[in-house]
Protein backbone atom coordinates (compact mmCIF):
# COMPACT_ATOMS: atom_id res chain seq x y z
CA UNK A 1 0.00 0.00 0.00
CA UNK A 2 1.64 3.08 -1.40
CA UNK A 3 2.06 6.30 0.52
CA UNK A 4 2.55 6.81 4.21
CA UNK A 5 -0.87 7.07 5.87
CA UNK A 6 -2.21 10.48 6.90
CA UNK A 7 -4.19 8.94 9.69
CA UNK A 8 -3.83 5.60 11.42
CA UNK A 9 -6.28 4.12 13.84
CA UNK A 10 -4.68 1.54 16.09
CA UNK A 11 -6.53 -1.00 18.24
CA UNK A 12 -9.26 1.47 18.99
CA UNK A 13 -11.90 0.46 21.52
CA UNK A 14 -15.00 2.50 22.33
CA UNK A 15 -17.57 1.81 25.00
CA UNK A 16 -20.99 3.28 25.63
CA UNK A 17 -22.63 3.46 28.99
CA UNK A 18 -26.20 2.27 28.89
CA UNK A 19 -28.82 1.52 31.50
CA UNK A 20 -28.00 -2.13 31.22
CA UNK A 21 -24.26 -1.68 31.65
CA UNK A 22 -21.44 -0.79 29.31
CA UNK A 23 -21.69 -1.76 25.68
CA UNK A 24 -18.54 -2.26 23.67
CA UNK A 25 -19.13 -0.54 20.33
CA UNK A 26 -15.62 -0.85 18.91
CA UNK A 27 -13.11 -3.53 19.70
CA UNK A 28 -9.53 -3.37 18.51
CA UNK A 29 -10.22 -1.48 15.30
CA UNK A 30 -7.19 -0.58 13.17
CA UNK A 31 -7.19 1.16 9.82
CA UNK A 32 -5.15 3.51 7.68
CA UNK A 33 -6.21 6.46 5.58
CA UNK A 34 -3.70 7.15 2.80
CA UNK A 35 -3.52 10.19 0.54
CA UNK A 36 -5.27 9.71 -2.78
CA UNK A 37 -6.83 6.44 -1.70
CA UNK A 38 -10.36 5.53 -0.72
CA UNK A 39 -10.96 3.25 2.24
CA UNK A 40 -14.43 1.75 2.12
CA UNK A 41 -15.85 0.73 5.48
CA UNK A 42 -18.77 -1.62 5.07
CA UNK A 43 -21.04 -3.45 7.47
CA UNK A 44 -24.58 -3.90 8.67
CA UNK A 45 -26.35 -1.89 11.33
CA UNK A 46 -24.57 -1.83 14.67
CA UNK A 47 -21.20 -2.85 13.20
CA UNK A 48 -19.58 0.33 14.47
CA UNK A 49 -18.74 1.98 11.16
CA UNK A 50 -20.30 5.31 12.13
CA UNK A 51 -18.88 5.10 15.66
CA UNK A 52 -15.41 4.78 14.13
CA UNK A 53 -15.93 8.01 12.20
CA UNK A 54 -17.25 9.80 15.25
CA UNK A 55 -14.40 8.53 17.40
CA UNK A 56 -11.83 9.84 14.90
CA UNK A 57 -13.45 13.27 14.98
CA UNK A 58 -13.90 13.00 18.75
CA UNK A 59 -17.61 13.73 18.46
CA UNK A 60 -18.91 10.64 20.24
CA UNK A 61 -22.11 11.03 22.19
CA UNK A 62 -21.65 11.98 25.79
CA UNK A 63 -22.16 8.45 27.08
CA UNK A 64 -19.44 7.06 24.80
CA UNK A 65 -15.73 7.00 25.53
CA UNK A 66 -12.54 5.78 23.90
CA UNK A 67 -11.21 3.18 26.33
CA UNK A 68 -8.17 1.93 24.44
CA UNK A 69 -6.11 2.50 21.32
CA UNK A 70 -4.68 5.39 19.39
CA UNK A 71 -5.80 7.65 16.57
CA UNK A 72 -2.58 8.96 15.02
CA UNK A 73 -2.59 11.95 12.72
CA UNK A 74 0.52 12.10 10.50
CA UNK A 75 1.95 8.92 12.04
CA UNK A 76 5.69 8.42 11.81
CA UNK A 77 6.38 12.10 11.18
CA UNK A 78 7.62 14.69 13.61
CA UNK A 79 4.15 16.22 13.64
CA UNK A 80 2.51 12.99 14.83
CA UNK A 81 -0.47 13.67 17.13
CA UNK A 82 -2.55 11.13 19.01
CA UNK A 83 -6.09 12.45 18.76
CA UNK A 84 -7.25 10.28 21.66
CA UNK A 85 -4.97 12.33 23.91
CA UNK A 86 -6.64 15.60 22.97
CA UNK A 87 -9.58 17.11 24.75
CA UNK A 88 -12.55 16.92 22.33
CA UNK A 89 -13.32 20.58 23.01
CA UNK A 90 -9.73 21.80 22.78
CA UNK A 91 -8.49 24.30 20.23
CA UNK A 92 -6.18 21.66 18.78
CA UNK A 93 -9.02 19.22 18.18
CA UNK A 94 -11.16 21.92 16.65
CA UNK A 95 -8.27 22.69 14.35
CA UNK A 96 -8.21 19.07 13.25
CA UNK A 97 -11.91 19.03 12.46
CA UNK A 98 -12.57 20.86 9.23
CA UNK A 99 -8.97 21.84 8.47
CA UNK A 100 -7.50 18.32 8.52
CA UNK A 101 -10.51 16.02 8.57
CA UNK A 102 -13.77 16.96 6.84
CA UNK A 103 -17.05 15.14 7.47
CA UNK A 104 -19.89 14.49 5.06
CA UNK A 105 -23.14 13.40 6.68
CA UNK A 106 -25.77 10.95 5.51
CA UNK A 107 -28.45 13.57 5.89
CA UNK A 108 -27.01 16.91 4.74
CA UNK A 109 -29.74 18.66 6.69
CA UNK A 110 -28.00 17.65 9.91
CA UNK A 111 -24.90 19.60 8.87
CA UNK A 112 -26.74 22.62 7.54
CA UNK A 113 -28.69 25.21 9.43
CA UNK A 114 -32.03 26.27 8.03
CA UNK A 115 -31.67 29.79 9.34
CA UNK A 116 -28.63 30.80 7.34
CA UNK A 117 -27.91 30.93 3.64
CA UNK A 118 -25.61 28.39 2.08
CA UNK A 119 -23.04 31.17 1.57
CA UNK A 120 -23.17 32.27 5.20
CA UNK A 121 -22.38 28.80 6.40
CA UNK A 122 -19.63 28.24 3.89
CA UNK A 123 -18.03 31.61 4.60
CA UNK A 124 -18.14 30.90 8.32
CA UNK A 125 -16.40 27.57 7.78
CA UNK A 126 -13.76 29.13 5.51
CA UNK A 127 -13.00 31.93 7.94
CA UNK A 128 -12.93 29.65 10.95
CA UNK A 129 -9.50 28.29 10.14
CA UNK A 130 -7.55 30.71 8.04
CA UNK A 131 -9.46 33.93 7.70
CA UNK A 132 -8.82 35.48 4.29
CA UNK A 133 -11.34 38.28 4.82
CA UNK A 134 -14.99 38.44 3.98
CA UNK A 135 -15.02 39.13 0.26
CA UNK A 136 -12.28 36.61 -0.51
CA UNK A 137 -14.14 34.05 1.58
CA UNK A 138 -17.29 34.67 -0.43
CA UNK A 139 -15.41 34.18 -3.68
CA UNK A 140 -14.01 30.98 -2.28
CA UNK A 141 -17.50 29.84 -1.20
CA UNK A 142 -18.69 30.30 -4.76
CA UNK A 143 -15.71 28.32 -6.05
CA UNK A 144 -16.42 25.54 -3.57
CA UNK A 145 -20.02 25.35 -4.76
CA UNK A 146 -18.84 25.28 -8.38
CA UNK A 147 -16.37 22.54 -7.48
CA UNK A 148 -19.22 20.61 -5.92
CA UNK A 149 -21.01 20.72 -9.25
CA UNK A 150 -23.72 23.16 -8.27
CA UNK A 151 -25.08 25.00 -11.31
CA UNK A 152 -25.22 28.81 -11.07
CA UNK A 153 -23.19 29.02 -7.83
CA UNK A 154 -23.26 32.85 -7.87
CA UNK A 155 -27.00 32.81 -7.16
CA UNK A 156 -27.14 29.58 -5.16
CA UNK A 157 -24.69 31.00 -2.64
CA UNK A 158 -27.51 33.18 -1.33
CA UNK A 159 -30.08 30.40 -1.20
CA UNK A 160 -31.29 28.78 2.00
CA UNK A 161 -30.79 25.02 2.31
CA UNK A 162 -34.53 24.33 2.29
CA UNK A 163 -34.76 25.89 -1.16
CA UNK A 164 -32.48 23.18 -2.57
CA UNK A 165 -33.26 19.62 -3.62
CA UNK A 166 -31.77 16.66 -1.73
CA UNK A 167 -29.02 16.19 -4.30
CA UNK A 168 -28.00 19.85 -4.25
CA UNK A 169 -28.04 19.86 -0.47
CA UNK A 170 -25.62 16.96 -0.37
CA UNK A 171 -23.41 18.89 -2.79
CA UNK A 172 -23.50 21.82 -0.39
CA UNK A 173 -22.67 19.37 2.42
CA UNK A 174 -19.63 18.27 0.43
CA UNK A 175 -18.62 21.89 -0.24
CA UNK A 176 -18.92 22.55 3.49
CA UNK A 177 -16.73 19.56 4.32
CA UNK A 178 -14.10 20.88 1.89
CA UNK A 179 -14.27 24.50 3.15
CA UNK A 180 -11.31 24.06 5.50
CA UNK A 181 -9.31 22.40 2.71
CA UNK A 182 -8.84 19.12 4.59
CA UNK A 183 -6.62 16.32 3.27
CA UNK A 184 -8.76 13.67 4.94
CA UNK A 185 -12.46 13.28 4.29
CA UNK A 186 -14.90 11.03 6.10
CA UNK A 187 -18.18 10.38 4.30
CA UNK A 188 -20.77 8.61 6.47
CA UNK A 189 -23.32 6.97 4.17
CA UNK A 190 -23.27 10.06 1.94
CA UNK A 191 -25.73 8.69 -0.62
CA UNK A 192 -28.02 6.47 1.44
CA UNK A 193 -30.77 9.09 1.61
CA UNK A 194 -30.59 9.80 -2.12
CA UNK A 195 -32.19 8.33 -5.21
CA UNK A 196 -30.15 6.15 -7.47
CA UNK A 197 -29.55 8.71 -10.23
CA UNK A 198 -28.65 11.39 -7.68
CA UNK A 199 -26.45 8.89 -5.87
CA UNK A 200 -24.59 8.26 -9.11
CA UNK A 201 -24.02 11.99 -9.49
CA UNK A 202 -22.74 12.41 -5.93
CA UNK A 203 -20.46 9.38 -6.18
CA UNK A 204 -18.99 10.67 -9.42
CA UNK A 205 -18.42 14.03 -7.78
CA UNK A 206 -16.77 12.51 -4.70
CA UNK A 207 -14.52 10.40 -6.89
CA UNK A 208 -13.46 13.43 -8.94
CA UNK A 209 -12.78 15.65 -5.92
CA UNK A 210 -10.89 12.93 -4.12
CA UNK A 211 -8.65 12.30 -7.14
CA UNK A 212 -8.08 15.98 -7.97
CA UNK A 213 -7.22 16.97 -4.44
CA UNK A 214 -5.39 13.75 -3.60
CA UNK A 215 -7.61 13.33 -0.56
CA UNK A 216 -7.64 10.34 1.79
CA UNK A 217 -11.31 9.38 1.77
CA UNK A 218 -12.99 7.12 4.30
CA UNK A 219 -16.28 6.07 2.76
CA UNK A 220 -18.74 4.45 5.13
CA UNK A 221 -21.60 2.56 3.53
CA UNK A 222 -23.72 -0.56 3.75
CA UNK A 223 -23.92 -0.82 -0.04
CA UNK A 224 -21.52 -3.31 -1.60
CA UNK A 225 -22.09 -1.67 -4.98
CA UNK A 226 -20.89 1.70 -3.74
CA UNK A 227 -17.81 0.09 -2.18
CA UNK A 228 -16.99 -1.84 -5.35
CA UNK A 229 -17.21 1.30 -7.45
CA UNK A 230 -15.45 3.72 -5.14
CA UNK A 231 -13.01 2.08 -2.77
CA UNK A 232 -9.37 1.07 -3.18
CA UNK A 233 -9.14 -0.74 0.12
CA UNK A 234 -11.96 -1.98 2.26
CA UNK A 235 -12.63 -2.83 5.86
CA UNK A 236 -15.54 -5.16 6.60
CA UNK A 237 -16.91 -4.62 10.08
CA UNK A 238 -19.15 -6.76 12.24
CA UNK A 239 -20.28 -5.90 15.77
CA UNK A 240 -17.49 -3.45 16.43
CA UNK A 241 -14.65 -5.48 14.94
CA UNK A 242 -12.87 -5.27 11.61
CA UNK A 243 -13.27 -8.83 10.40
CA UNK A 244 -11.52 -8.33 7.07
CA UNK A 245 -9.22 -5.64 5.69
CA UNK A 246 -7.80 -5.80 2.17
CA UNK A 247 -7.68 -4.13 -1.26
CA UNK A 248 -11.20 -4.10 -2.66
CA UNK A 249 -10.49 -6.39 -5.61
CA UNK A 250 -9.04 -9.02 -3.31
CA UNK A 251 -12.09 -8.89 -1.08
CA UNK A 252 -14.54 -9.23 -3.94
CA UNK A 253 -12.61 -11.94 -5.78
CA UNK A 254 -11.37 -14.02 -2.88
CA UNK A 255 -12.99 -13.02 0.40
CA UNK A 256 -11.14 -14.43 3.38
CA UNK A 257 -13.73 -14.17 6.13
CA UNK A 258 -16.91 -16.29 6.18
CA UNK A 259 -18.94 -13.17 6.97
CA UNK A 260 -17.58 -11.31 3.95
CA UNK A 261 -18.28 -14.34 1.77
CA UNK A 262 -21.85 -14.58 3.01
CA UNK A 263 -22.44 -10.84 2.78
CA UNK A 264 -21.24 -10.69 -0.82
CA UNK A 265 -23.45 -13.60 -1.78
CA UNK A 266 -26.54 -12.03 -0.20
CA UNK A 267 -26.31 -8.89 -2.33
CA UNK A 268 -29.07 -8.81 -4.97
CA UNK A 269 -27.65 -9.22 -8.45
CA UNK A 270 -28.71 -7.09 -11.41
CA UNK A 271 -28.07 -10.06 -13.64
CA UNK A 272 -30.01 -12.63 -11.64
CA UNK A 273 -32.30 -15.10 -13.34
CA UNK A 274 -35.99 -14.54 -12.65
CA UNK A 275 -37.06 -15.56 -9.14
CA UNK A 276 -33.50 -16.48 -8.22
CA UNK A 277 -33.07 -17.04 -4.48
CA UNK A 278 -30.31 -15.26 -2.63
CA UNK A 279 -27.78 -16.81 -0.32
CA UNK A 280 -28.65 -15.81 3.23
CA UNK A 281 -26.95 -15.53 6.57
CA UNK A 282 -29.07 -17.15 9.24
CA UNK A 283 -30.36 -15.08 12.14
CA UNK A 284 -29.97 -11.37 12.61
CA UNK A 285 -27.26 -9.05 13.84
CA UNK A 286 -27.36 -9.38 17.65
CA UNK A 287 -28.25 -6.41 19.79
CA UNK A 288 -25.09 -4.62 20.96
CA UNK A 289 -25.89 -5.48 24.58
CA UNK A 290 -26.15 -9.17 23.72
CA UNK A 291 -22.70 -9.62 22.21
CA UNK A 292 -21.88 -13.27 21.66
CA UNK A 293 -18.80 -14.64 23.37
CA UNK A 294 -15.66 -15.30 21.34
CA UNK A 295 -15.87 -14.35 17.68
CA UNK A 296 -18.97 -12.11 17.45
CA UNK A 297 -20.01 -13.78 14.20
CA UNK A 298 -19.84 -17.36 15.48
CA UNK A 299 -23.61 -17.88 16.12
CA UNK A 300 -24.35 -17.10 12.45
CA UNK A 301 -21.20 -18.55 10.93
CA UNK A 302 -21.64 -21.55 8.63
CA UNK A 303 -18.04 -22.61 9.25
CA UNK A 304 -18.05 -22.24 13.01
CA UNK A 305 -15.60 -24.37 14.98
CA UNK A 306 -17.45 -25.07 18.21
CA UNK A 307 -15.32 -25.08 21.31
CA UNK A 308 -13.03 -22.54 19.71
CA UNK A 309 -14.88 -19.70 17.97
CA UNK A 310 -17.27 -19.35 20.89
CA UNK A 311 -14.52 -19.26 23.52
CA UNK A 312 -12.15 -16.44 22.62
CA UNK A 313 -12.14 -14.00 19.72
CA UNK A 314 -9.60 -14.58 16.95
CA UNK A 315 -6.69 -12.17 16.70
CA UNK A 316 -7.56 -8.88 14.98
CA UNK A 317 -6.26 -8.16 11.49
CA UNK A 318 -2.62 -6.99 11.91
CA UNK A 319 -2.50 -3.21 11.45
CA UNK A 320 -1.31 -2.11 8.04
CA UNK A 321 -1.71 -5.55 6.49
CA UNK A 322 -4.37 -7.30 4.48
CA UNK A 323 -6.08 -10.13 6.26
CA UNK A 324 -9.05 -11.38 8.20
CA UNK A 325 -9.81 -12.01 11.82
CA UNK A 326 -10.80 -15.67 11.73
CA UNK A 327 -9.50 -18.93 13.19
CA UNK A 328 -9.83 -20.64 9.82
CA UNK A 329 -7.10 -18.36 8.49
CA UNK A 330 -4.92 -18.71 11.55
CA UNK A 331 -5.05 -22.47 11.04
CA UNK A 332 -4.18 -22.22 7.37
CA UNK A 333 -0.94 -20.40 8.10
Amino acid sequence: MADRPLLSVRELAVEFRADTGTVRALDSVSLDLRPGRVLGVVGESGCGKSVTARAILRILDRNGAIVAGKILLDPGTTAEVDLTALNPESQAMRGVRGARVGLIFQEPMSALSMQYTVGNQLIEAIRAHNDPGKSVARQRAIELLRDAGIPRPETRVDAYPFQLSGGLRQRVGIALALAGDPDILIADEPTTALDVTTQAQILTLLRRLQRDKHIALMLITHDMGVIAQMADDMAVMYLGRVVEYAPVREVFHSPRHPYTRALLRSVPDLRATPRQRLATIGGAVPQPNARPSGCPFHPRCPEVILGRCDVAPPAPVPPGEAGASCFLLEDAV
Binding site: S165, G167, L168, D195, V196, T197, T198, Q199, A200, Q201, L203, T204, R207, D223, M224, G225, V226, I227, A228, Q229, M230, V248, R249, F252, H253, L264, V267, D269, L270
Partner: peptide, 25 residues
Amino acid sequence: QALLAAVPKADPALRDAIFAPAGEV
Protein backbone atom coordinates in the same frame (compact mmCIF):
# COMPACT_ATOMS: atom_id res chain seq x y z
CA GLN B 1 -31.34 2.93 -19.28
CA ALA B 2 -30.26 5.79 -17.04
CA LEU B 3 -31.60 4.04 -13.94
CA LEU B 4 -29.78 0.82 -14.76
CA ALA B 5 -26.56 2.67 -15.51
CA ALA B 6 -26.73 4.58 -12.26
CA VAL B 7 -26.83 1.51 -10.05
CA PRO B 8 -23.38 0.93 -8.55
CA LYS B 9 -22.46 -2.61 -9.58
CA ALA B 10 -21.11 -4.78 -6.82
CA ASP B 11 -18.09 -5.76 -8.90
CA PRO B 12 -14.78 -3.89 -8.83
CA ALA B 13 -14.03 -5.22 -12.32
CA LEU B 14 -16.81 -2.99 -13.66
CA ARG B 15 -15.08 -0.03 -12.08
CA ASP B 16 -16.19 3.46 -13.09
CA ALA B 17 -19.26 2.01 -14.71
CA ILE B 18 -21.55 4.49 -12.95
CA PHE B 19 -23.21 6.78 -15.43
CA ALA B 20 -25.17 9.54 -13.91
CA PRO B 21 -27.83 11.29 -15.97
CA ALA B 22 -27.55 15.03 -15.89
CA GLY B 23 -30.02 17.21 -14.01
CA GLU B 24 -32.58 16.45 -11.40
CA VAL B 25 -35.89 14.65 -11.15
